[in-house]
């Protein structure tokens, strides 16, 4: 009963904050405090470790995996691709002059000129296109390798997502926020149900991770994405994961890099501002 009351209270808060058009700063404060209260023993920056921050039982095994991580060879592949000159003699470094210092923490950002949210993956493919090269496929393969390399170089940098004073930026932010809290699919379950109200609980045998810190670790290597049935090598982008979570509730997933998922990533990543980039990561 208490739990129900809590859920209702939080639901009302969420509705209230929609009604009064809370600023992103206020949202961020409330969002975080919810997790800090729910997990008083988890150190604040530990939320970058996904489910392993709240599940001590699987943490040890995960730490062992991270000693010799399966994503390492893909970071190397990403580096190779990054340094391969384009046909016009230029290269990725011309598009990302600060890549050595790390740039992952600045994505996604709102581009006031185009009125669009720009993700790191979007910027990688734009660089290819602008230089007459064929863009990569969106969810797996080369895009995930280059993204993993750039994340790797950014480790330890703190997420710094800005919402400029621009109606387009606010609209994108609010669209993402709405996606996060809205019930969807035949099963009628919101991202927030699983990753805001019930992180730490078990859904079947899986423990649900907090949404706070989700984006810091992407792209990820997932054992599940490496199996023969997944026909993949394990690597995948954040939008691949969004699609998977939409499918779990029998909702039709949006396309990777669609306006909808870029807006979701904008909100989702903003909520993790000031947390350290630690991608790529190893997952079950």
């Amino acid at each position: 009963m208490n739990k129900i009351a809590n859920v209702l209270t939080v639901a009302c808060l969420v509705v209230a904050s929609f009604a009064t058009q809370a600023t992103p700063e206020q949202d961020l404060k409330e969002f975080r405090e919810h997790y800090y209260k729910k997990f008083p023993n988890v150190p604040k920056n530990d939320f970058i470790n996904g489910v392993y921050a709240v599940d001590p039982a699987s943490r040890e095994q995960w730490e062992a995996f991270e000693e010799f991580p399966s994503y390492e060879i893909f970071v190397d592949k990403g580096e190779e691709l990054f340094n391969k000159p384009f046909a016009n003699g230029k290269g990725f470094a011309d598009c990302f002059p600060n890549y050595k210092k790390g740039i992952r923490q600045n994505y996604p950002y709102f581009d006031t000129k185009s009125g669009k949210v720009v993700t790191l993956e979007g910027a990688i493919n734009k660089c290819l296109k602008d230089n007459g090269e064929k863009p990569y496929k969106w969810k797996t393969g080369n895009i995930a390798y280059v993204s993993a390399y750039l994340a790797y170089l950014s480790r330890g940098n703190k997420l710094n997502i800005k919402i400029p004073d621009d109606p387009g930026a606010m609209a994108a932010y609010n669209r993402g926020k709405k996606h996060f809290y809205a019930k969807r699919g035949q099963l009628n379950i919101a991202c927030a149900d699983c990753h805001f109200y019930y992180p730490g609980s078990k859904i079947r045998a899986d423990i649900l991770s907090p949404a706070l810190g989700h984006p810091t670790g992407f792209p990820v290597y997932r054992n599940k994405w490496a199996g023969a049935s997944a026909k993949g090598d394990g690597m995948g982008t954040l939008h691949r994961r969004y699609g998977g979570c939409n499918k779990q509730v029998r909702a039709k997933p949006f396309k990777a890099q669609s306006d909808e998922y870029r807006a979701l990533e904008y909100f989702h990543t903003y909520m993790s501002n000031d947390m350290e980039v630690n991608g790529p990561s190893q997952r079950k």
């Binding site: 129900i4 859920v7 209702l8 639901a11 035949q186 099963l187 009628n188 379950i189 149900d193 699983c194 109200y197 019930y198």
Partner: peptide
């Protein structure tokens, strides 16, 4: 009916 924001699936109305 008991909790408008429940995570539990509306098995009937959603024809699950």
């Amino acid at each position: 009916v008991n909790n408008p924001n429940t995570i539990m699936i509306p098995f009937g109305p959603h024809k699950v």
